[in-house]
Amino acid sequence: MEIIWQGIKQAIILIFTGNREVYEILFLTLKVSGSAVFFSMLLGIPVGVLVGLNKFPLKKFIIAVINTGMGLPPVAAGLIVILFIWRSGMLGFLKLMYTPPAMVIAQVLIASPIIAGITLAAVQQIDPKLKQQVLSLGANRFQVYWILIREARLPALAAVMAGFGGIISEVGAVIMVGGNIKGETRVLTTAIVQMVRMGNFDMAIALVVILLAITFGVNFLLTLIQQKEGIGWIRRF
C-alpha cells in the first residue's frame, strides 16, 4: 500500500509542477490520438452513412467487413501496418516506421471501423421514411446525407468518442509501429509500460492518473450525451 500512496503523491507533484516529460508525453498522445480520430471520422462517418443508407451489391459483405474491423485486435492492426511500412514493405520508402504518423495510421485502422460501424447502425435506425421526407423537401443526394448525418449526430458523436477512447488506451499497436522512442513516439500507454519496466513507479502512476482522467472525461461526456440526448450546444448544431 505504501508504494501506491507514495506513487500517487509523487504523481500529483509531477502533474502539478509541470514535469516536462509528463507533459511531452501527454501532448504527443493527444496529438496522435486526436489526429487519428479526426482521420477516422473523415473515413468512418461517410462510409457508415453511405453503406447504411444505400442499397448496392455486396452491401452485406461490406457490413460484415466493417463489423470484423470493429473487433480488430490492436496488435493485428499494428502488424498489418508494420507489414506495409517497414523498410522492405510496400510503403517503406516513406520512412514511416517508428514515427508518429505510423501510430496515427495504426490507430486509424483501429478506430475507423468502430466509427463506421456505429454510424452505420445509427443511420440504419433512422426511419427510412425520413429519407423520403428529406427527398421530398427537394434535397439532392449530398443534402440527404448531410441532413441524415445530422439526424444521427448523437450516435455519431458517441462513435467518435468510442473510437477515441479505444485508441488512446491502446498499447499493442502503437508500441509495434511507434517503437516507444522517448520524446518521439512515447505516448501515455507505452510510457506506462516503460516506466513499470524501469521500476519508475511514481511516473507510471502519474501517467495512469492522467490516462484515467482523459478516458473518464470522454466517457463522462458520452454518458451525459446519451442520457440527456444532447446538451445545449449539440442540439443547436
Binding site: D127, L130, Q133, S136, E151
Partner: peptide, 21 residues
C-alpha cells in the same frame, strides 16, 4: 427528380420531423 420535387411539397401521415428545434 430533385427539380420536380422542388415544385411540390408533401405532408405524410406521420409528421417525420428532424431532431432539432
Amino acid at each position: 427528380q430533385t427539380e420536380v420535387r422542388k415544385k411540390m411539397a408533401v405532408v405524410f401521415q406521420e409528421p417525420l420531423l428532424f431532431n432539432t428545434s
